[in-house]
Computed example of a mutant assay.
Amino acid sequence: MLRSMYSGIAGLKGFQTQLDVVGNNIANVNTSGYKKSRVAFQDMMSQTIAGASAPTDIRGGINAQQVGLGSQIGAIDVIHTQGNRQTTNRTLDLALEGDGMFIFASGTNDVAIDLADVNLSYTRAGNMYLDDANRIVNANGEYLVGADADGNPTVITIPPTASSFSIQGNGVVNYIDENNQTQVAGQIMLAKFSNPGGLEAIGANMYRSTVNDGMIGTNGIPTLITPESDGSASIVSGALEMSNVDLAEEFTDMIVAQRGFQANTRIITTSDEILQELVNLKR
């Protein structure tokens, strides 16, 4: 069979994957904290018809003759750029301006957290809530990880007697007690990654650590970083970071993928016509 036919099939598979990625980006255009993905292609192994030869005393060198065998997916990258900020005026809606991610813990009901004994996940989506015990959780019921006055990991709890509470840019959660005095409930902490693209998406706006994410920490346990310190993000209360998807870019990529898909179908149909001519040589 013709090599071009198999190259066309490889191209169809690649552009179908690109359409899948573009479709997922568009579907999440209004998902808070969502980070868009992109597809990077690379060529496949080439078949060498003739090898290269070195120059001699009577003639110059000759380049190798190779025929490519199509394309393949080289990488599907997650682009962790800053998304636009949407104001909600809701205290427990938190947006991050800068580097870092919120840390959430599950698998425990204790206020004091041992990070080595809980399931940790990370996100840029800051839509938080209070549960029945007045602890700050996300939409999945996972606890927001903070620190107490001694810097130990803890679940931040707002006392039920508090008349109001607020969250500062450095993550400090203040509340007004029954004596109309300002008290500190805890401080929201962040995790940082030198390669956030290495995180594994697990759904529900959450990511899980991998061996290639460059986490700042040891043995898979993140170092708790104070917001607005060491180049980390500032927390903006009353706002959400929205998706970083650019619809104009996605629709352009969709058109490119569609035309690429169509071009590869032409390769297959043209190869089929050539094979038909070969079959018709014997009449």
Rank of each mutant, 00 (worst) to 15 (best):
I73H: 09
R3L: 00
M44L: 11
I73Y: 14
K35A: 14
G74S: 11
A204E: 15
S194N: 09
E142W: 08
T108C: 10
L2C: 04
Q168I: 07
T108G: 06
F102I: 03
M189R: 15
I136F: 00
M1C: 13
Y122C: 13
G100W: 04
E200I: 01
I79N: 09
Y122K: 13
P55A: 04
S232Y: 07
G23C: 11
R208H: 06
T223H: 04
P159T: 08
Q262M: 07
N24G: 04
D99V: 07
M101P: 11
I9G: 14
T226N: 09
T17G: 05
A149T: 11
N140P: 00
I216D: 14
F15H: 14
A105K: 01
A133L: 15
V155H: 04
V173H: 02
D77S: 09
Q18L: 12
Q187I: 06
V78T: 05
G61A: 10
Q82C: 00
A204W: 12
A233P: 05
E249K: 06
V245K: 01
G197N: 04
L19M: 15
V245Q: 01
N219P: 06
K192H: 11
Y122Q: 12
R3P: 01
D57A: 14
N138D: 15
N119F: 07
Y175A: 03
A10E: 05
P196Q: 06
T265L: 11
R208F: 04
I58G: 12
L281A: 10
S106H: 05
K35H: 10
K192Q: 04
A263L: 12
R124V: 00
D114Y: 01
V256Y: 02
K35G: 02
N244V: 08
F193M: 07
A263C: 02
I76V: 15
A257V: 08
G231M: 04
I188H: 14
N170Y: 08
Q16N: 15
F15M: 04
V137I: 15
A27E: 02
S209Q: 13
V111M: 13
M5V: 02
G74Y: 14
V173C: 09
N25Y: 05
S234P: 04
E273D: 15
D99C: 02
N89R: 03
T87N: 05
I79E: 14
Q47G: 01
M5P: 10
S71F: 13
D132S: 14
R38D: 03
N219C: 07
N152P: 03
L247T: 01
R59I: 14
V145S: 12
L278K: 10
Y175W: 02
D246T: 01
E228K: 07
N63Y: 04
A248S: 14
Q262F: 12
N89S: 08
S53E: 13
R208S: 10
G83N: 01
S163M: 06
F251H: 04
G169C: 06
H80D: 10
M215R: 03
T269S: 13
D77H: 08
I225F: 07
M1W: 08
L92C: 00
D177K: 09
I176A: 10
L69Y: 02
M5K: 02
Y122G: 03
M5W: 05
N134M: 07
M254Y: 00
T270L: 02
D20K: 01
V236Y: 07
S209K: 03
G14D: 08
L130E: 10
I235E: 12
